[in-house]
Amino acid sequence: MTTPNELRLLPWTGPDGKPCFLSTDDSSGYMSRLADNIESAQLGMATALLDQALDILAQAETDPEDLRLLTKDLTGALRDTLRVATSRGHRLDSRSTDQRPR
């Protein structure tokens, strides 16, 4: 039986907002590569959004609607980034467990 620390948290959720997991030993398989690419895109979008946020916040006057949209986008990017960090942290933990001498 697969234990929870052997499952990879995927960078997307199901239709009901619940987390999706992948159980595989093949880190170069199609689903693993797809997840890696989506994680990379999410982190890239978060970086670009952070730059945009810094520009908007540096302006003397910013429209409240622009700030609301920025907050919504930053919240989504933070959620995605935390999911990526959690997934990668779990995989690091499982690798270090796998490498312990028995």
Rank of each mutant, 00 (worst) to 15 (best):
L57A: 11
E6Q: 13
P101I: 04
A46L: 05
R33S: 15
T47N: 13
L49R: 05
L57C: 04
S96D: 05
L10G: 01
L49M: 12
S87L: 03
Q42C: 09
R79P: 06
T71W: 14
A85K: 09
D93L: 13
D66V: 09
S87N: 03
M31Y: 15
L7M: 12
R33M: 15
P15D: 12
P15F: 03
R79S: 11
L43H: 03
L82H: 05
L74P: 01
T81G: 04
T3A: 13
D98L: 10
L54A: 00
N37R: 15
N5R: 05
S32I: 08
D66E: 14
L67Q: 04
D51T: 12
R8M: 06
L70S: 01
R68D: 04
R88L: 09
T81M: 02
G29N: 05
L22N: 00
E6Y: 00
D93N: 10
Q59Y: 00
K18V: 07
R100D: 08
E39K: 12
A58I: 00
T13C: 14
P15T: 03
P19K: 07
P64G: 02
R88G: 02
W12C: 03
D51A: 15
L70M: 08
C20L: 14
L92A: 05
T47R: 14
S40T: 12
D73G: 02
L67A: 06
R8G: 01
E65D: 13
R79K: 12
P101L: 09
L49F: 05
S23Q: 12
R79Y: 11
H90K: 05
L69Y: 07
G44M: 10
D25V: 06
L22V: 04
G89A: 12
R100Q: 15
Y30G: 13
T2Y: 10
Q42M: 10
T75W: 10
D80I: 00
P64V: 05
H90I: 10
F21M: 04
L7H: 02
A85H: 07
T86N: 10
L49I: 04
R68S: 10
T62F: 06
R79M: 08
R95M: 14
D55V: 08
T2L: 11
